[in-house]
Every structure is written in structure tokens, then in C-alpha cells.
Design a protein around this nucleic acid. Structure first.
Lengths: 341, 341
DNA sequence: ATGAAAGCGCTAACAT
DNA sequence: ATGTTAGCGCTTTCAT
């Protein structure tokens, strides 16, 4: 920027302080006549205030950092959109970072964000870098909202899916359809979503007095190609399941690849329930029954929580745990296609 | 941040300048012994340099702004990922902004980005705010890379899909399959991608001596629900087409909804070709034939172009126009399902 | 109602 | 090889 506030002051024939008060609408009143002069000068010079200089002074950057584990996952795009919608009203920007589930990359980004003096951080934590996160909250008055994964020992807000309930509902749905052998292709159970979904699944089985067959529970990573192999293993076992619950849209992609290539009719031979309802689930053939969450709304919740936390940061703030409910959307992959294809 | 560079200097028993030279690895050499002392002090205090203060001094923010028209569109997520991968190596951050195809929102974001002194901007322009964009390039030494849409009169780099060729290939493919009545559900032809695709489509028809029936070309916006209605109109016309070329993944979503609800067999009754190859095209039933571009690579190209432009900004730089080639991926929606379903 | 000036944390030119 | 210091553009306290 070449035009500075001093240029504006000079042109308007006022002091630079007055220009500030005009721009910020305070904290000191400015005579209407003076105001007009200043505004005209700003306009004439095409002046844009330097947020950087302001931030240096105020220690606020009106920027928040969002660190997600996979920017390509539509779940995170949808959340980011929700967060952005809330933040734009307050003139905040989002710095979007993609940790790729890599703790080193995560740490690097966190350092960058702190250096940029972000006013808050939203993160799907890898689970590492706890020290840094703790230190950040304590030392920098930089509120943090965890999404998707709760981490013990971090006194921060946390917004999660109701994983246990989601898995429970999905499993019950399959049981009610008469399935006896229901498999679960799960996320790593080292992370909260993974083990919560496992719990929900097991609870539904237990309540229905169905045996818990360890061969029916398989854990994958986040990669679709791994899901392909795991689907192969599950479906070729001596006693294959008649239904499969798949714990993420990425894993489901791998499973669909497999069932498609091997012409496994869905739901006749295998009923399928997905998690992370994403748009295309609705218009594929068959369409996919899924545990669905209103992601944009969840993003809004996250944004609001963070914003509120930023504006009144308080030493004895009590971290909140918000569980966003999910509901089962029943489609053709479990109840058969009314349309055929 | 509470710990400043002065605290570090004091603890290490050196001047603050020396701390700078250690942190930045120059521009002045520092004795190894001193270096170690400084590094130890940094570590001990948990010091993080303030990027904000540095930016104020250097006029560089090591941040770029990315303004896309729809963050929920996987095309843009993929591009953003490619850009980010390039920028991370140079320690740049991405501020991601979602204009939602709204010129006012776009302008607001552009102002914010300039205020934050971003070092460069990547944008899918709405087509408005030309003055601001021009002014920004000229006045702020802030290079701009346009993506997807070329704007006349803006002397900036521009990276686009090879829309004409893509549409041409797709249309040819359908012609070779024997289709005579091929419809085009297009983006607004006021934007470059729209009219280039129209050109490609028309060229293929012309070369095959097929008549150009205006009823077969329909323009939509970007919304899936509008596409649903348009699909209805096209397919219920007196002489319905036997093949349909759909100009974006969002529009295709609407079309698939329609064909699904009305049990229109694909490709038997209607052959379908999409644009913007996105992952799910491959594993739906039927899978979708599409004009495909390597988006991550395209993101890399964009990132590199911008980065190079940032590091040697030059008054007589000649803006580059890069056209990223696309290729047709033939799947079941045009050639029939080998797998059935 | 307005002006003058200190200072935010850093970089780099000018010192030694 | 290292220290000193001006100044980036802003906000805000202290003046008037």
C-alpha cells in the first residue's frame, strides 16, 4: 500500500488521529463536517487501511485459523463454509490449513498461525502437538475449538458429531431389516469418532442379543484405496456379512469401487450404510443410506462458539462440549431401489 | 504473544538485531556460539516471532488470498489443495474466501485482502470489480492470477481449462456413438467457460454436418436445483435429445436427480457426459463419462505462477495465459454398463 | 472537537 | 561480529 493514513490526514487537513476516529467510528466523536472531509479524502486517494499495522497495535488480527485434516473431504468444505458465513459478519478472515493428518505439518501451521496472531483456532487435531496447543491457549489468549475429535487434557471447546448415537441408529436400522451379520468398516479407534462409533454399533448388537463377531469389525485409515482392500477381505470371509456400516465417505468410496467392480448387488447381496452424508449419496444409483449431520449448521455453531469465546475471553471460562445430533437418512442402499436401474 | 524479541535478546545477552539475524538466517552472519545462545533462549522462552510486526516492516505478509466462487464445489477444493501444497514450501499461508458468485461479497473480501497486505491473489472473478482489481495490480504490486475465467482488459496471469477442446471432444465422442440430437446444458455463456464450451460443442456439430438446433442448448446458473428444472424442460421437449452434455458437476447433480426420479435409463435412453470430473463420477452406477482435468496439478501450476510472479515482480512482466488440457474419461454413462446393477 | 506523540515488534541501515 | 536506532502505519493517551 502506498497511500497511508498520513496522506489522508494531510489531504483532509486534519490530524491522523482524526482519520482513525472516522475509520473506526470511535472511540472519539468526530464533527460531521470533518468526517465528510476525511471520507472524501479517503475516497479520492483510494485509501485502504493497513490491517497489519492495526493488528500490531491492537494485538487482534481479525483472522482465525482453521486447520483441517483433509481439505478434499467435502465434510470439511461444508464446515468451513458454515464457519466462514458466521465470521464474515464480524469481518473476520479464515486462514485455511490442511494438516493432511500429519503432525509435523500441523505443528508448522500452528506456529504460523500464532505468528500471525490469529484471534482463534478451529482444528481437527491429529492428536499430537498437545503441548503446543496447551501453551497456545494459556499464553496467547487464543481460544481453540476442537472439531470432530475430543482430546483429553485440553481445556477447550469441542464440537463433535454424535457418533455413538449415529452408529447405534444405523446398526439398529439394519437389525430391523433382518440383518444378522453386520460388519463395521471403521476409522481408527484410536480417535474418538472411531471408538464412539464402535460403541454405538456394539450397543445396538447387544440390545438385539446378536453375537459380537470380531471378524466383522475392521479398522481402516482414511484412504479410499485401503477401503477397497478391506472391503475385499470382509466380503470374501468364510461367513460374509449381509450388511456393512462404513464409517466415512472416503472409506465408502473405496467400498463402492469394490462392489461395483465385482458386481455385488446393493442392497440385495449387501446392504450399505455410510457416514458423513455428502451430496452425491442422494443421487447415485443406488442412493446411499447414511448417518447425516447438518454440516453447515455445525459450522455455524463452531463459528459462533469461537467468536463468542474471542470477544469475551475469560480465564475461568468453562469449556463446552457440544454434540451435534445426527439422523439416519434411509435410501436405496438398505431398502432397495423403487426406481430400479 | 507476550514474549518478544527483546526478551530473547536480554536472556541471550545479545542485541535484538542479532536475534533477528539468527531467526532469519541473515542477512548478516552470526558466530556459531552466539547463535546457539540465541536458539537456546528462544527455546527456553517458547518464543514465536510476530509475523505481523515483520510484515509491517517488510511489506510482505507471506500470505496469499484465494477467492473462489463456491467453496463447496470440489473443483475448488482440489485447486486449493494444489495451491496450498506449493505455497507451504515457501511458508506461505492461504486466506480462503468464498465470494458465492456475489460481486459485493467479492469486493469486500478483496478489500480485506489488500488491507492484510497479501502478497498475491488467486481469484475466480465474478466479472465485476474490475476497477478494484486493476487498481490493486497497479498500485500495490500485488500480482493476481485469474482462474477459470479470463477477463478482457485485466493484464494478469490467467489459468483456464481448455473448455473449447473439452466440449469438442465430448461432443465428438457422442457423435461417434451415433447420437444425432445432442443437447448442451451450459453455464451462463456470459462467462468464458460457458461460451468456450458452446464453441467446442458447435464446432463438433458443424464438422459432423449436424444441424444446430437452438432448442437443444440451454443455459443454467450454478445451482443444482435449477438444473433439475432445465433437465425436465429439455427431456420433455417434442423431440428430446438422446444425449446430454452437462457443463458442470453442480448442474450434473441436478440432472442425475431428475433422471433418477423419473427412471430414465442411462445411457440407453439418454447418454450423459459431465464436466469437472470429480471423484464420485467414477464409482456411481452408472459411472459418469466426463471431461477431466488434473485439478491438483492445475493448482500447482497456479501456485507456481503466483509464487514466481511474487518473487520477481516486474513492471514489464508479460501476463501469461495458461490453458490446462483436459481429456475425456469414458465411462458407463455413454457406453453402457458392463457391470449392470 | 481536535492535535501531538509514544509505542506495538520487527528489520536493516548505520554504527563500532 | 555485534550493538544502536529509525521507522513501518496504526491506535490511543495526553494534551490543548
Amino acid at each position: 500500500m502506498n497511500v497511508t493514513r498520513n496522506d489522508v490526514a494531510r489531504l483532509a487537513g486534519v490530524s491522523s488521529a482524526t482519520v482513525s476516529y472516522v475509520i473506526n467510528n470511535g472511540p472519539r466523536p468526530v464533527a460531521e463536517h470533518t468526517r465528510q472531509k476525511v471520507l472524501r479524502a479517503i475516497d479520492q486517494l483510494g485509501y485502504n487501511p493497513s490491517t497489519i499495522a492495526r493488528s500490531l497495535k491492537t494485538k487482534k488480527s481479525t483472522t482465525i485459523g482453521v486447520v483441517v485434516s483433509d481439505i478434499l473431504n467435502p465434510v470439511f468444505s461444508a464446515l468451513a463454509k458454515g464457519i466462514e458465513d458466521v465470521m464474515l459478519e464480524r469481518n473476520y478472515n479464515l486462514i485455511l490449513c490442511n494438516s493432511d493428518e500429519n503432525p509435523e505439518r500441523e505443528l508448522r501451521y500452528l506456529r504460523m498461525l500464532v505468528g500471525k496472531q490469529v484471534d482463534g483456532i478451529v482444528i481437527t487435531p491429529t492428536g499430537k502437538n498437545l503441548n503446543f496447543l496447551l501453551h497456545t491457549v494459556a499464553a496467547n489468549n487464543c481460544p481453540i475449538v476442537l472439531i470432530d475429535r475430543k482430546i483429553e487434557g485440553l481445556p477447550t471447546d469441542c464440537v463433535t458429531f454424535d457418533n455413538e448415537m449415529g452408529a447405534y441408529q444405523a446398526t439398529r436400522h439394519l437389525i430391523e431389516l433382518g440383518h444378522r451379520r453386520i460388519a463395521l468398516l471403521n476409522l481408527p479407534s484410536t480417535l474418538t469418532p472411531g471408538h464412539e462409533r464402535l460403541f454405538g454399533y456394539e450397543r445396538a448388537l447387544r440390545e438385539a442379543d446378536l453375537p459380537r463377531d470380531p471378524n466383522l469389525v475392521v479398522e481402516g485409515s482414511f484412504k479410499a484405496d485401503e477401503a477397497y482392500r478391506l472391503a475385499e477381505i470382509i466380503l470374501n470371509s468364510p461367513e460374509p456379512p449381509t450388511a456393512l456400516l462404513v464409517s466415512s465417505n472416503r472409506l465408502l468410496a473405496g467400498v463402492l469401487n469394490y462392489t461395483k467392480q465385482h458386481c455385488i448387488p446393493i442392497p440385495q447381496k449387501l446392504a450399505l450404510v455410510g457416514f458423513d452424508d455428502v451430496p452425491y449419496y442422494a443421487y447415485t444409483s443406488p442412493s446411499i443410506t447414511a448417518v447425516s449431520t447438518d454440516l453447515k449448521h455445525m459450522g455455524t455453531v463452531i463459528g459462533r462458539l469461537l467468536e463468542q469465546h474471542i470477544t469475551n475471553f475469560d480465564k475461568d471460562y468453562i469449556p463446552q462440549n457440544i454434540r451435534v445430533p445426527s439422523k439416519l437418512i434411509v435410501r436405496e442402499s438398505t431398502i432397495g431401489s423403487p426406481a430400479g436401474s
